[in-house]
Structure formats: structure tokens, C-alpha cells
Amino acid sequence: MWQFRFPTWIVLDVLGLLVQTALFPHVFPVGYVPNLILPLTVIIALYETPRRGLVAGLVGGLMQDMWAGRLWGLNALTYALLGFAVAQLESRIVRDNVFVPGLLAGVSQLLVMPFQWLLLYLFGLAIPWSDFMRPLPVWLLFSMLVTPAIGGILGFRPRHEVEKKYSRVAH
């Protein structure tokens, strides 16, 4: 199933970054442009094992870092840990296709921002906290709406469901 393949993630990340760098700046004002790697990482990791979730986040974050051309590792570290955490949670929560991805993406966005602020601070970019957190409402709303939408459009489903479907077809 293509949903669980590594190249799929890369294609999705490239498309996400393209939209984020070329299309979104026309819609959102400077500084408020939301991130698409976070929703992608959450929706991919939600149906993955922790290790594969970590890899998915690492790949997405690393691509954003290389695209940005500044601090290599800022987003890689953030999203690798996020992917791992989401995939860890996955086995412990009841899953549906709308509310859980949305809620998880919202919580992730809430946690990611202070973490990135801290990383930027540690590596020499001290942005005032109040300025840094200003786009949070916009980004929160965005990730909570977009994550289930991406999952729905791409038809992401749990592995066992996908495999069961295949076995049913085979019989």
C-alpha cells in the first residue's frame, strides 16, 4: 500500500513544501505562513510504528531545513520527535478519522512552537517570546483543520484495515 512507502512520504513532503513556499505567501501575511510538514508528519505517524514515525518526521523536517538553508536540524529534530511521539500515542488511543488527527495536530502545534523557540534560542536566534507566539492561533486552526483533510483526501487508514481489505480481495 503506497501510504506506508518511503517515496510517498518524500513526494508528499516536496508537494507540501512547494505549496508552503510558493502558494501560501499569497494567502497569509509575512510571518503567519503555516507549516504543512507538521500536518503531514502527524497524519503519517498516526498509522505507523514509532520508529517509522520518527523516520517520517526526520525526512520531512530535514527537507524543510535544506530548503530553508539555515539551521540544518531545527525542523528535523522537532518533527522526528513529533513523529515518534504521535506514533507512540497511536496504540493507546481510540482512533477516528477526523477528531483524533485534528486534536493531535493541535496539541503538536502547541508543543512544537515552544520547542522550536528554545532550539532557536540555543543556537543564537533570540526571538521575543510574545512575537514568536503571535501566529499560534492561526497555525493552530490551520493544522487542526488541514490534518484531517489531508488524511481524508489521501485516504489514509490503519495498516490492519488496509491489509484486511487486501486479504478479502484475494479470497
Partner: peptide, 14 residues
């Protein structure tokens, strides 16, 4: 201008 930086705290464009 064809694209902006994906990180919103770094302001570069292509």
C-alpha cells in the same frame, strides 16, 4: 519572486 523561505522566522526568497 517565485518562492519564500519555508521557515517563517528566516526571511529569504527566491
Amino acid at each position: 519572486v517565485i518562492s519564500r523561505n519555508p521557515d517563517s522566522w528566516f526571511q529569504t526568497m527566491v
